[in-house]
């Protein structure tokens, strides 16, 4: 338990490495790392902070609960944040305008935090709904990135865009497998209960 807490603290403070110009530049100069390393790290950091809050300050969680019936708010937030940062112009503007970059960091972090806080309250059907939505979103964006004949972001090379497209499709396939697995166990447990 202590180890899990330490891990959560580490994840919570992990995005502070982005304050270092060198690290941020290395990550954000590659589309693949920007989308498939920075975004998940920010999201996981928020989730870790949410888990810590649940463990040590559950009164705040009860306040959130009043505005997050069965995790519907969390799901809406996560889907909105994910969709917004799939837009090529959003990626470019986050690199060229500090205000947009700030929104990017906070929105991903807050999305993770919200999901962690509401995960236990969320019904399995809603969890699968979210996974399904993320699955088609990443899959279709990944295919679009690969199908484009020109660069979609002025800050990234064409080859990087293609690679990111393939990686997004891979993530979508992984999410689809996870969804199928959860759906299988959900059906079995429902049958057992019946």
């Amino acid at each position: 338990m202590k180890r899990a807490g330490l891990l959560a603290v580490c994840f919570t403070i992990l995005p502070s490495v982005l304050l270092l110009d060198v690290v941020r530049h290395v990550i954000e100069s590659r589309m693949l790392l920007h989308m498939l390393l920075e975004f998940p790290v920010l999201f996981l950091s928020g989730a870790a902070a949410g888990a810590l809050m649940l463990a040590h300050w559950d009164r705040a969680a009860r306040v959130v609960e009043k505005m997050d019936y069965r995790g519907l708010t969390a799901i809406t937030l996560v889907l909105c944040v994910s969709a917004y940062w799939m837009i090529p112009a959003s990626l470019d503007n986050s690199l060229l305008r500090p205000g947009v970059a700030f929104v990017k960091y906070t929105s991903w972090w807050f999305g993770g935090w919200m999901l962690a806080v509401s995960w236990q309250r969320m019904s399995e059907v809603l969890r699968m709904f979210m996974l399904g939505n993320l699955c088609w979103m990443f899959g279709s964006v990944g295919l679009l990135y690969q199908a484009s004949e020109s660069r979609l972001c002025v800050n990234y090379l064409f080859g990087d865009q293609q690679m990111t497209g393939r990686a997004l499709v891979t993530v979508a396939v992984f999410l689809a497998a996870l969804l199928a697995y959860r759906a299988y166990w959900y059906t079995r447990s429902s049958e057992a209960t019946a």
Binding site: M67, Y69, L72
Partner: peptide, 13 residues
């Protein structure tokens, strides 16, 4: 809770 959630979700959307 449901009404609050619906309002927050509408604002988010």
């Amino acid at each position: 809770g449901l009404v609050n959630t619906a309002c927050v979700c509408a604002v988010l959307a």
